[in-house]
Design a protein around this nucleic acid. Structure first.
Lengths: 264, 264
DNA sequence: TAGTGGTCTAGACCACTCA
DNA sequence: GAGTGGTCTAGACCACTAG
């Protein structure tokens, strides 16, 4: 009981492998983050291994528990460490990273072809009379409009899983005139549009950026607030080049790598 | 002096517009983050406006200063708030977001065409006898190799600015046999390779993901640690399809939106 | 019930900026 | 020198998990 390192099931690691420097230029919590991170990257700890408790770490490094927590918080956001309330902190196992070749194939088709299962859960479907949907314009200020299909729009919000792990929080807006009568997420929304409308829906352009997970994102995607998300925005068109859908995917940065071929 | 809100040059805002709920499900610091963020998004505060000091905020909300700091730290990472040591906290002004149509054009050409100036600073050039460069394989585990050009490689590390604001921290690896004799960042590295080697260098594929800024990223890109970065990895080839360069760009997520056309 | 992580406090000292 | 943000402490209480 007096030696906390014994109560942990883990290899005998030299914690606090480097003493903290109080006069050094680097803040103590940054030294801790670097020291813990280094031990994980060096392989002294393997994914799934328990870290010493925060109290034990604080004693080992000779700092307060809050200083330890600050270092751990950074590692959690970066996906290096995973914490379980009431249980402990563990070296996170990196999820399988999927390379998606972005093209005309949907995520469902592309993943199915490679033996992965995709599940989609439709969280919300609502018809909006005003096409200027507030939730879709705030980040970039671009209005989501359909010049060729004026009138009300239908807004979808859905979550996609790949192999039972959250993949993305997704939003889509389509003209109500083109919306499939009901979409339950069993197939691609745009396959459903193609079927209902009788015309092929093409993926046109894709715009990539990076954002941090909001509390909502965090709840849906099972990541900590502040985790990196790949923001993928796009427009789909029909065979005549008329915009028929605007989409936004907020994709877990630790899971996805979207590949595109650059035409010559 | 007894009323801290008077000493701030800012419109008379109702700070602590919502009292914190101690029994509510949401943590107090999350309520603060949401409340401050809402006041900024609603336009009650404009970019450049000073926020009350942390002490004043703590008094206004009736919480400790550390709780205020935790809320502000999140807003700083997200780019909503900017802090200046010894000066104060301010509503951050969003940098101009550039849409780059990724293609055969280099960033320099593409930006010059639109009236922007690009500066490149070469931080490091080193020849490596071992092509398995550690710094280039850790994130994805893919080795960076050149099957058609065995032998030593040259590794470049450079920073790119657009309009005097940091844009990306970039890395490139090319076979030493194809490396330009000297590259000072004045032109595109691959234009220099084309010129030196006599063969056109094509951009082949691009892979997008999202990561958090490390302390090194933060120092180079002038963003806080934990800010979102767009990770762009790619391969360039010569006219015969042989890989001649592997590149990694770590691009500020608050500045860049990379667009690509999806071929039909 | 014991141990863990999650939250919050009150206070202290430092580094920095600016009048 | 006054005011600001940056760091760190010691201690407290709560929520959660597990034996």
């Amino acid at each position: 009981m007096s030696d906390p390192s014994v109560s942990q099931r883990q290899p005998p690691v030299f914690w606090a492998s480097r003493p903290v420097l109080r006069a050094g230029g680097m803040a103590v919590w940054q030294q801790l983050r670097a020291d813990i991170s280094r031990q994980i990257k060096d392989g002294a700890l393997s994914p799934g291994d328990a870290l010493p408790s925060e109290t034990a770490l604080a004693e080992a490094y000779g700092v307060s528990r809050l200083t330890v927590r600050r270092a751990l918080a950074d590692l959690v956001r970066a996906g290096t460490v995973r914490t379980e309330h009431g249980v402990g902190s563990f070296v996170a196992s990196q999820p399988l990273r999927h390379r998606i070749d972005d093209g005309q194939m949907s995520l469902l088709e592309s993943m199915a072809k490679r033996g992965h299962t995709v599940r989609q859960l439709v969280l919300d479907v609502r018809q909006m009379d005003d096409p200027g949907v507030p939730g879709f314009t705030d980040a970039w200020g671009e209005p989501y409009e359909f010049p060729s299909f004026p009138g009300p729009v239908v807004e979808y919000q859905y979550i996609r899983w790949v192999d039972e792990l959250p993949w993305s929080a997704s939003f889509a807006v389509v003209p109500a005139a083109l919306a499939p009568p009901s979409w339950d997420g069993a197939n691609s929304l745009f396959a459903a549009m193609s079927a209902a409308h009788g015309t092929k829906v093409w993926r046109d352009d894709r715009r990539f950026s990076a954002v941090l997970a909001t509390p909502d994102d965090a709840a849906w995607l099972k990541v900590p607030v502040g985790a990196p998300l790949l923001l993928l925005r796009g427009t789909n068109s029909d065979t005549e080049g008329r915009a028929v859908a605007h989409i936004v995917h907020r994709i877990r940065g630790d899971r996805a790598e979207y590949g595109v071929r650059v035409p010559r």
